[in-house]
Structure formats: C-alpha cells, structure tokens
Simulated assay, not measured.
Amino acid sequence: MMDLHCHVDLYPDHGEILRDIENSGYYVLSVTTVPSAFRGTVALAENLTNCRTALGLHPQLAHQRHNELPLFDSLCNETRYIGEIGLDGSKGYAEHIEDQLLVFEHILKKCCEFEDKILTIHSLNAVDEVLKLLKKYPSSGVPILHWFLAKKKQVANAIELGCYFSVGPAMINSARAKKVISWLPRNKVLLESDGPFAKTDGRPTLPSDVVLVIRYLSELWERPINQIQDDLKLNLKYLISSKKL
C-alpha cells in the first residue's frame, strides 16, 4: 500500500512517524514545503527503503520563499518526485497569488527538462488556475492532485489531463470531499495521509491510517477490501512506470 503525501519532517515525533513507515511497509512519499528542507528530510529517512523524498515549495510559502527557486533548480535532478507545489486561493493566501503563479510556473517549466517527474499538487480554491498551467506544461510530469476539492466539471478536466488523485482519511469525514471521491475514476485513485496537518482521532494522521480510506472505498465501490488493495497497488505501479514526454 502507499501514502503519497506525508510531511515526514514536520511531525512532532520523528521516531513515531519513522517507525510507522517502517512497520507498515507502505510506499511513502515524504513531501517538503521548501527546497532548503529537502536534504535534511532525505537524511531523516535515509534508513528506510520504502520512503522517497519529494522536492517542493508550498504555495502558502511562495511569497516568503520564492528566493529558493535557484536552490530548487539545483536539486531538481536529485529526485523524481516534486511536491508539495501548486496554488492556494484561500483567505490569507489569495493576496499572494502572483508570487504563487511565478513559483508554480517556474517549477513546471523546470520539470519539463526531465522525462519522468511525478508531481503532488495543492489546488485549494485555485483549481481552474492549476489545471490551466498543467495544460500549458503537459511535459512537466504526471500530476497527483492532493486532497482535491472541485466541481464535477473540474474533475472531468483533471481526468482529461491525465491526473491522479490522492485521497486521505480526513477526506472521508467531509461530505464535500466524499462527493468528489465518488466522481473519481478507480484507476486514478491513490492514498495519502497529509500528516501531521490532517488529523485522525485528534492526533496527526500516520501512513498506516490510510486503511480507513481502503475500507471506505470498499463500501463505495462495493468490492472486497483485498480487491481494493489490488486495484490501488496497480494504480501505484502504473504511476511509477509512467512518463510524460
């Protein structure tokens, strides 16, 4: 199984999250919020064979850390995975949308220099703008829309662009998110925790908590849990073997 969006370096207890990754055996993508955190996060999980680190610059930090773009460029060949990146049109961040657009477009352009990037993307209250830029840079990589909240037409547009969608335990506690999940194609669904920001039972969500999503999908799709697990593993296999040329 997998957790394709986890902020490993930001957990208050690194020992707990590292043990959970090791004990679960799940394929975990450790995302970063600024390029300067990348190498330290790589070192944090260096003894885990089932954890990969992504290089990111979070849209909520774009206006403060856009000066790290040269560092992003210098590190971009050290990992296949890019994230967390994207745009955020929420209150408190929409005022910085020009900085966000500059950063996100720069990153997509840079990723076009490679053939195999996988991108985990934040699009809260900025779905149309994110999809517009993904369409503009189709060679930037394979997009995973993290915690995707959108209208049905926007979901259809994302599917047309070849996007995957990562679903976490926090989403299945939201009526709005559950509606979006019901619109997703089964062959494009992946799992995430978004811990430690997302919470499960009042504590930071761990990779092992994605089992809650598996149970939910089993009910939604009316398929046994073992078949859901097989479907999700196949989705991960196709993601990892994919390229956008």
Results as ranks from 00 to 15, higher is better:
residue 1 M to E: 11
residue 3 D to K: 02
residue 4 L to C: 04
residue 6 C to F: 01
residue 13 D to E: 10
residue 17 I to C: 01
residue 24 S to H: 02
residue 25 G to E: 06
residue 25 G to R: 07
residue 26 Y to F: 15
residue 29 L to I: 11
residue 30 S to D: 01
residue 30 S to Y: 00
residue 34 V to D: 10
residue 37 A to L: 11
residue 37 A to F: 13
residue 38 F to Q: 00
residue 39 R to S: 10
residue 44 L to M: 08
residue 46 E to D: 14
residue 47 N to L: 09
residue 49 T to M: 05
residue 54 A to W: 05
residue 54 A to F: 03
residue 56 G to K: 04
residue 59 P to Q: 00
residue 66 H to Q: 12
residue 66 H to W: 10
residue 68 E to H: 03
residue 78 E to V: 00
residue 81 Y to C: 00
residue 83 G to Q: 07
residue 84 E to L: 03
residue 87 L to N: 05
residue 92 G to V: 06
residue 92 G to A: 06
residue 98 E to L: 10
residue 100 Q to T: 09
residue 102 L to Q: 14
residue 103 V to Q: 08
residue 105 E to L: 03
residue 106 H to P: 01
residue 107 I to E: 02
residue 109 K to I: 12
residue 111 C to M: 00
residue 112 C to A: 12
residue 113 E to G: 09
residue 114 F to D: 02
residue 116 D to A: 03
residue 117 K to W: 05
residue 117 K to Y: 03
residue 124 L to H: 15
residue 131 L to S: 03
residue 132 K to P: 01
residue 136 K to D: 10
residue 139 S to K: 15
residue 143 P to A: 07
residue 145 L to Q: 07
residue 148 F to M: 06
residue 151 K to A: 10
residue 158 A to K: 03
residue 159 I to N: 10
residue 161 L to G: 01
residue 162 G to W: 04
residue 162 G to N: 06
residue 165 F to E: 11
residue 166 S to E: 04
residue 169 P to F: 11
residue 169 P to L: 12
residue 172 I to Y: 09
residue 173 N to D: 15
residue 177 A to M: 08
residue 177 A to T: 10
residue 178 K to P: 01
residue 179 K to H: 11
residue 182 S to T: 05
residue 190 L to S: 10
residue 190 L to Q: 08
residue 190 L to R: 10
residue 194 D to H: 07
residue 203 R to A: 13
residue 203 R to C: 09
residue 206 L to K: 11
residue 209 D to Q: 08
residue 213 V to D: 06
residue 215 R to V: 09
residue 216 Y to H: 11
residue 216 Y to R: 09
residue 218 S to V: 02
residue 218 S to E: 12
residue 219 E to W: 04
residue 223 R to M: 15
residue 224 P to M: 08
residue 225 I to E: 15
residue 229 Q to N: 12
residue 232 L to W: 10
residue 235 N to S: 06
residue 237 K to D: 13
residue 238 Y to T: 13
residue 242 S to K: 08
residue 242 S to C: 09
residue 243 K to F: 11
